[in-house]
Write a protein that binds this DNA or RNA. Sequence first.
DNA 1: CCCCGGACTGACTGGTCAGTCAACTGGAGA
DNA 2: TCTCCAGTTGACTGACCAGTCAGTCCGGGG
Lengths: 228, 228
Amino acid sequence: MASARDAEEAAADKPAGPDKRRMILDAAVVAFAKRGFHACRVSDIADEANVAYGLVYHYFRSKDEVLDTLFLERWNVLLEVITEIDHQTLPARDKLYAIASFIVDSYRHDPDLMKVIIVEVTRAANSFGRTHLTAIREAYALIAGIVEKAQADGSFRDAVTPGFAALAFYGAIEQVLTGWIFDMLPRGDEEFDQAKAFIVETICGGLDAAAIHGTIGRPPEPSDRMGR
Amino acid sequence: MASARDAEEAAADKPAGPDKRRMILDAAVVAFAKRGFHACRVSDIADEANVAYGLVYHYFRSKDEVLDTLFLERWNVLLEVITEIDHQTLPARDKLYAIASFIVDSYRHDPDLMKVIIVEVTRAANSFGRTHLTAIREAYALIAGIVEKAQADGSFRDAVTPGFAALAFYGAIEQVLTGWIFDMLPRGDEEFDQAKAFIVETICGGLDAAAIHGTIGRPPEPSDRMGR
DNA sequence: CCCCGGACTGACTGGTCAGTCAACTGGAGA
DNA sequence: TCTCCAGTTGACTGACCAGTCAGTCCGGGG
């Protein structure tokens, strides 16, 4: 991950080379997380990084590019990790657990970064979400692939399509992170680990006490309430 | 729902009384959906409503108040509907289906409104999401209550807490809507109805082919990958 | 007939920022 | 010593836009 940076630092022989670009990126995470991308001024980033305003524009073409960089840097790691997990020989359920685990741990490790990624990109349908749609879809496709294989070998039933299962799985994860981001859910090592288990349990095990697996229950009559 | 408006119109005896306030609200939905709240200018709303700029400020104190109104108007309906569903004597699974159904149908009926509510409020941790947190939590609490009762009477197993199940359930719904909002998922009457069934099936029935319900599977060893 | 007040209009103001740029610094090489 | 230039600085500009306000229009009551 940080190998390029390590090499550069070693070559430059600076004990704790400031690496202003990195400082700006890290400061941007804090600033974006605190006030949100729109409300955050470029001067907030510069201040947080203890760096002159103009330097941000030395390293990045625009405020947008700072967020893009932050997102892609991390999302590519996620994509790599999922791919790697998928290549292991593991029950699908364990693969999903490993993925949930990685994402939850990412939040535990750097809540601000994950908050920014989720709130400003992954869920921002009118701005960055659109521009990074391809990368986001890739994650879904990877998860769907895991489900599909499990359905093929019979370890998952095929009551729902793989794409749909991927959506629900990732949706549950993001919703839990959102719960933490909004301070709706208690945070703590115990809660984080419990969340991983609960996510997988909910999506894989289901809620029904007597699940007659294999047959999809025909939907009950729909409610007719339609407002507005 | 629109009874207050009907009464007003009847009293005023206007054949198609413009009701500019409503026109502004409806125009705002279109404008916010198209460009997002931040990128949308107040003049966009006024233009869309065929109304003078200043009139927006005659009916609303600020641009924010327009969104607040839009959100609360609809969210209160949702809260009412969930409460009503909960009061019926129905298996928990059917209650959840009715809720999913109502939300999906809300999207079917007015995709722009739901897009605005989800993107600009429900998932906006730094702006409106915070200010409407109480209302949002209410919906979770209602859903959690349904799960809790089902666990008490034994129709749902208690491998996960009610609050967590509510989170996953609502998260799955929102993620599906997000899929439509992002144009990641095909839209159509068939897809909408399938989605309702899939959401409930995923959350209630689970993915595992051989779910040994009643015992919570101990988590497999976690992945140690930790990046950044 | 006039007055009042609510509905309505849109030009204008004040403040806010993203992005620019001219200037400065310090170290490496000639 | 003198370039040179990447890295660095922060004052400044130009655009944009939420919100204001002075004023018009019109219907109803006196």
